[in-house]
Amino acid sequence: MSTAAAQTATGTGQTATVTGQTAAESAAAAGVRTEAAAPTRGLVEITKVRKSFGATEVLKGITLTVEPGGVAVIVGPSGSGKSTLLRTINHLEKVDGGHIAIDGTLVGYEVRGRRLHELREKDILKQRTEIGMVFQNFNLFPHLTALENVAEAPVVAQGRSKEEARKRGLELLDRVGLKDRAGAYPRQLSGGQQQRVAIARALALNPKILLFDEPTSALDPELVNEVLDVIRELAKSGTTLIIVTHEMGFARDVADTVVFMDEGQIVEQGSPEQIFANPQEPRTRSFFSKVLEPAFNI
């Protein structure tokens, strides 16, 4: 079922790139935002970001730019700081130095005098509504149904009406192929279905940027693809995606930019062809020689 949904959506995405007129129509029909044709929002600029946990420095001055509508996939060994970097982008993790800007606006801070002052909670929450996040463990609210999970934030964080949020929620669940499970509680869903609900929940706020923190790591191998199919569709919708993953085949398939991180630093970045086929750094080469063989089954 999910494959069918993904395929239709893929078709829409492809038309969108060909002609503007049809793109707008078919995009509207599939519930895809019309900005999809020419993404103008969602520029992420990470500048010299540093972060330590106690004595361990997990981010050692990261600088990275992701263009509007771009798809950046961050790969690297465990403990290399990938997830921490992702969590600094929506200020779930405070940085110790450096800054992050989205479309030119600093995240979590404002400039006053010659200092960066942390924003009030209220303003940070407002910024977060523009940045969707999908977690490794889904973190769906277990006491709310799939639809309630999706419709909660638009009502409280964006002040939409309940009816509007519900309608939009159903559209989004339809988009991830789960319209018929709208009334189910998360524990009544499979892992793959839960993660698709989580993606719909992140989309409900119409974010400029979507962050994926190892979205398939907690899934059974057979459920991985239904989630990846949904993300593939999103990659064509014009939302900026930043994805931390261990699925190398998927990374090569979906990414504009692959970023290889190790020990809190970006070792190498470039197009998937360049990074996977012709890595320049010895550290990158040794990492891929270990992970590529089994992961390329996809």
Partner: peptide, 16 residues
């Protein structure tokens, strides 16, 4: 209650 619940809610911009 799992810490991830609070994180997810904060990431969605839900007030404290």
């Amino acid at each position: 209650v799992d810490q991830g619940q609070l994180e997810a809610a904060a990431a969605l911009g839900i007030p404290a």
